[in-house]
């Protein structure tokens, strides 16, 4: 993982399969109780130019658990960039003077890559527009591995907004590394983008299309649900893009339901008390994965 050490993480494409497995193994050590003070005496800038409750708080929790401190802001509205017209690059150069590393969420695609070019401290991408959110994918992979005991050959159902969801796009991208079997559950309007389909075919990934979770629930190890991004649609979406308790009638005992959160009606609260609900554990896993990543980047 030499490419990570002191460099940060911009895109999952920058990691090899072995890098990913090493990060997940390290995260497991944190989950099992390992404690480290890697960030003792270090200050990390946690700069969220757009709000993201879970990502920001789990990063800041990870920094604190490693003995570090954070400075920064929870949304971009109170910055000089927003109020005084400061350029984004000037803001980055200023942050470069104040912190030992930058954790950044930004609404524009490619913002993290640009930050890594103009700064000489490690930059960790906490989501740049519709482009990349590598730590979300890492925690999703960790959650699949931790709940199933393996990443290879998992039967993974992807359900909801398969067309526009960044997390779905990244999971599809990762599935080729781990030979997952994909069950793509969506209404016709929300089926995966043609580029993703092309990639699946190119890499020989097994997949099938379905319109409801009930059709395939008895075959799934994990069911990954996403929120419907209603702001992208003019009209109502016809069909079923969520689940209910009865959906799980024929579920395998090992089935786990994952969701990047926040959730809407696609994942009703009545599921929370079933043994299949894993999404809050998944959110908790985000802290361990981010601890692991920070420990690798800033470790000696």
């Amino acid at each position: 993982m030499q490419n990570l050490r002191n460099n940060g993480l911009i895109s999952l494409q920058d990691l090899s399969k072995q890098d990913i497995l090493d990060i997940l193994a390290h995260a497991k050590q944190f989950k099992d109780g390992m404690r480290k003070n890697t960030l003792d005496g270090k200050v990390l800038a946690s700069c969220f130019f757009e709000a993201s409750t879970r990502t920001r708080l789990s990063f800041e929790s990870a920094v604190a658990r490693l003995g570090g401190k954070t400075i920064g802001f929870a949304d971009g509205s109170s910055t000089s960039q927003s109020n005084k017209g400061e350029s984004f690059v000037d803001t980055l150069k200023m942050l470069n003077c104040y912190a030992d590393g930058l954790i950044m969420r930004h609404p524009n695609d490619g913002a993290a890559r640009l930050a890594s070019e103009v700064m000489n401290i490690p930059v960790i991408n906490a989501g740049d527009g519709a482009n990349q959110h590598p730590t979300q994918t890492l925690l999703d992979l960790f959650s699949i591995q931790d709940s199933q005991g393996q990443l290879e050959d998992v039967n993974l159902g992807l359900m909801g907004d398969l067309k526009y969801s960044r997390t779905i796009h990244s999971l599809i991208d990762s599935s080729k590394l781990f030979n997952m079997r994909l069950f793509l559950i969506a209404t016709p309007e929300l089926r995966i983008a043609s580029e993703d389909l092309h990639e699946l075919r190119r890499h020989g990934i097994s997949y099938s299309f379905h319109s409801t979770a009930e059709e395939v629930i008895e075959r799934l190890d994990c069911l990954y649900l996403t929120r419907l991004q209603k702001e992208r649609f003019n009209g109502a979406i016809e069909g079923n893009y969520g689940i209910s308790l009865s959906t799980l009638d024929k579920a395998k005992p090992n089935l786990k339901i994952l969701h990047p959160l926040p959730r809407l009606e696609e994942l009703p609260a009545e599921i929370d008390d079933t043994p299949y609900a894993y999404y809050f554990t998944q959110a908790q896993n985000g802290v361990y994965v981010r601890q692991a990543l920070l420990d690798i980047i800033f470790g000696a």
Partner: peptide, 27 residues
């Protein structure tokens, strides 16, 4: 793409007779 706030950077590759322009920021 963030390049609209700074300056663009593109790389190029020839694929099947077409020149593909790749934005180095938004990919």
């Amino acid at each position: 793409c963030v390049s609209h706030q700074y300056r663009s950077k593109f790389s190029f590759t020839d694929v099947s007779g077409k020149t593909i322009a790749h934005c180095c920021y938004c990919d």
